[in-house]
Design a protein around this nucleic acid. Structure first.
Lengths: 130, 130
DNA sequence: ATAAACATTAGAATTATTCTAAAAATGGTG
DNA sequence: CACCATTTTTAGAATAATTCTAATGTTTAT
């Protein structure tokens, strides 16, 4: 149970997620994967993403009300525009130890999102919409 | 634009969310609301939840792959079981200032989830890694 | 009282994601 | 290699969650 990611699809999917800095959705990963393997099916992408996530090889990022996004595992945090959902990377350093101490429990990882209003949303309009 | 939450539905929904400690889904809130207003419709619940969230009167909590949950605004963090998605409250104190400093940006709020494996999931099965 | 603005409804429509069962690929064994 | 067990992929149906649309109802301000 040490060697994982054997299939070509899993391998390529991991590659896609890791080489992208753009928090792709399953659908986008699917499109990307299709370039190399035109026969592949969306369910396969979901299967593999779930497996990779289970094995801690990718991160899953969920923003309220939007499709889940997948991200490389390298630790970093996210800045999320509360209005349009735009996601940016930001690195606040590793808070694991601090958090474990405060919580008094040992954790697998943590997920930190800072909610703000992006430039556009701030200037554009004061009501909702992207 | 200062007085909000005027309608009976919004009022009651806010009441339900605030008086519950259980991170309810829209569906559950709907059921609860129906006790008082049997005529109400699910879309109304979504409309109101979205409005309340927009107005910062409730929190929305999303756990990967599950329906969004709604929560009172009182600051606290969450412990999420990575396997079963179970959600628990935990309070690590207010990190806003620290985070704003590290990020060098002013934020509306933040969302911190600690991922762990709950007792049950830890003992139950060892398949799927971890 | 009337018009403008906002809220609610019903149900269809859209998305995202999982499930199911069958077919295909892979792996190890004798 | 030949066989069986296991895992992966496929296609498409199924399930959820959430939004949209258009009509209708309610409230507010004039």
């Amino acid at each position: 149970m040490v060697l994982m990611v054997v299939t070509k699809y899993a391998k390529k999917i991991l590659e896609i997620v890791e080489s992208s800095r753009s928090h792709m959705t399953a659908e986008q990963i699917f499109e990307q994967l299709r370039i190399t393997y035109p026969k592949v099916v969306l369910a396969t992408v979901y299967n593999n993403l779930n497996r990779l996530w289970d094995e801690n090889r990718i991160r899953k990022v969920s923003v309220e009300g939007m499709a889940d996004r997948y991200d490389r595992i390298v630790r970093h945090d996210h800045l999320v525009c509360k209005r349009c959902g735009k996601l940016l990377d930001v690195d606040l350093g590793d808070l694991t130890v601090q958090l474990e101490q405060k919580a008094g429990i040992s954790i697998l990882s943590y997920d930190l999102k800072l909610l703000y209003l992006c430039e556009e949303c701030r200037t554009n309009t004061k009501q909702k919409g992207t």
